[in-house]
Design a protein around this nucleic acid. Structure first.
Length: 269
DNA sequence: GCCCAGGGATGCG
DNA sequence: CGCATCCATGGG
């Protein structure tokens, strides 16, 4: 191990198993991701995370990916201070971070995610990478554009095949660059104009693929936990929950969403 | 057989 | 606008 990162808010297991990325493997206690044709081994023990690459490689290829410009300890402290009812969630999720991922990979993941479960999302992404990726890295947009519509079914994506097919055929590198420059609301409207991308998927793409933090994706888990926390168990629409959360949590909304989600899917409640 | 899974499209009133 | 139904697929 060549590089050791000391940071209490960096737990590779929590980060990779928090439902934002499915392109990793686990062997023994180590996680592996592919970058620059390298298989990068990552392992967190207490407050230290070990990498089999040097610091220069980390700074060049992984620093932004792991959102190292953001102080998660400060964010947790501020959440605990302003919303004490959320402390058990930030404590449970200590070590979580957002991953600033590639737009196409995130879009693919969350188009597949609709009405699906995490296990099969991961399975579909693995098959996509195995069949179409070079050196087991996520395939390029040019490669994805060559996939025929009928070939998506072998990935186990079911009825989402035409969503992926149309998305890859329509999207361009230029449009992705435009999306990165847009304000959150404008980018949201552009994303939901694609067939197969609704409000929830668009918000996840904004969050994980375009670096936007002023969003609050509401899926079945977030809906349940938010209704329990703030709506007296009353059935409440995703739209209403989203607006409530953005107004109440302001610039902490997306971080709180991630802590709530992680708690909900990993704490068997 | 049922219901659910990090939902969304479509149709109907 | 809100609401119901359907969508492919595997696990509980």
């Amino acid at each position: 191990m060549d590089f050791i990162l000391k940071n209490e808010d960096f737990d590779i297991k929590k980060i990779l198993e928090s439902g934002q990325n499915f392109s990793y493997t686990l062997s023994k206690d180590s996680f592996f991701i592919k970058r620059e044709k390298l298989s990068i081994e990552i392992k967190t023990i207490d407050d230290k995370t070990y990498f089999n690459i040097d610091e220069e490689f980390f700074n060049k290829y992984l620093f932004n990916y792991f959102d190292m410009n953001t102080n998660y300890e400060l964010i947790r402290n501020n959440i605990n201070k302003n919303f004490p009812e959320l402390k058990k969630y930030t404590d449970f999720g200590k070590g979580l971070r957002f991953l600033n991922q590639d737009f196409i990979e995130v879009s693919t993941t969350f188009i597949i995610s609709q009405n699906n479960n995490m296990k099969r999302i991961k399975s579909s992404i693995e098959k996509l990478v195995d069949i179409y990726g070079k050196e087991k890295e996520f395939p390029s947009l040019d490669k994805l554009k060559t996939i025929k519509k009928e070939d998506f079914r072998q990935l186990g994506v079911g009825f989402r095949d035409e969503y992926l097919y149309k998305f890859y055929q329509t999207i361009t590198i230029e449009q992705i660059e435009d999306l990165k420059k847009m304000a959150t609301r404008e980018a949201f409207e552009t994303l939901v104009s694609f067939k197969g991308i609704g409000p929830k998927v668009a918000n996840c793409i904004l969050l994980f693929g375009l670096g936007k933090r002023d969003v609050f994706p509401v899926d079945t888990h977030i809906k349940q936990i938010m209704e329990k926390l703030y709506f007296d168990e009353k059935n409440t629409s995703p739209k209403e929950i989203e607006e409530f959360a953005l107004k109440k949590f302001r610039n902490y909304a997306s971080y709180i969403q991630q802590y709530l989600f992680y708690y909900k899917v990993n704490n068997k409640i």
